[in-house]
Simulated assay, not measured.
Amino acid sequence: MTGLLVLTAVPAEAEAVRAGLTDPTVTVRPVGVGPAVAGAATARLLTLAEAAGRPYRAVVSAGIGGGFAGRVAIGATVLGTRSVAADLGAESPEGFIPVDELGMPPELLGGGPTVDADPELLAALCAALPEAVVGAVLTVSTVTGTAASTQALADRHPDAVAEAMEGYGVAVAAAHAGLPFAELRTVSNPIGPRDRGAWRMREAFTALTAAARALS
């Protein structure tokens, strides 16, 4: 995919993506952990490229993440239909209130807590990765670590298949630049009570390299 910018959180993810690429025009950059640093770094990279007269044509947030048990298997590849700022909002005695339901003017929400994947880019990735699980990918600033919070997220987002920490930030930067966006994840662990022994990082990185071929 000529002119594609792929953003990961950490260098190990970037290396896994690069190992699967065959197109030298695809740029891969690790931009840091969390939506704020990922969004800021993405915006800077897009601005510098445009100023240099070499603008990118599309943006992909890629890496590993957690998957909702029963919706996606460990080692599977996920393509996001939308990237959701899942913990952006307010708590209340009745439960979590998403930011777009707090009565704020739409112009203050930067497009709201959800950014949809570009339909054409998503369709191309789905065609190249026919076994990928397709659904919403949640962006969180605090990784989910209890059964109760996992269930609450699953109930609030019945179409969600995975969670990570950068997609929404990258998506907002792409949207402000007017560029197509998509999110690609491979699953290293089930979302829920934190159990490092259940994580399958090697499998997830191997799957990420395999999935990266679709970006070439």
Rank of each mutant, 00 (worst) to 15 (best):
G67V: 05
Y168G: 05
R54C: 07
V10H: 11
V187H: 13
V137A: 14
P55Q: 08
E91T: 09
M1D: 04
L179R: 00
L184K: 10
T47W: 15
A85H: 12
L122R: 08
T150S: 12
H176Q: 14
T2V: 02
V78S: 08
M165A: 11
A38V: 03
G178S: 00
P55C: 08
S61F: 00
R44S: 10
A204C: 03
T81L: 11
D155F: 10
P93E: 06
L5Q: 02
T209I: 09
S92N: 08
V115L: 05
D87A: 07
V143P: 15
V31K: 11
E94R: 15
A147R: 15
E163D: 00
L79P: 07
G75D: 03
E101M: 09
D195P: 00
A9K: 05
R196S: 11
S141E: 14
M1E: 07
A58E: 05
P24Y: 13
A58N: 00
E107K: 06
V33I: 12
F181E: 08
T144Q: 11
A147Q: 14
G70K: 13
D116G: 09
A62W: 03
R57E: 15
D87C: 06
G65F: 03
A198K: 13
A69D: 15
A14G: 11
G197E: 07
V137T: 14
S141W: 06
T150D: 10
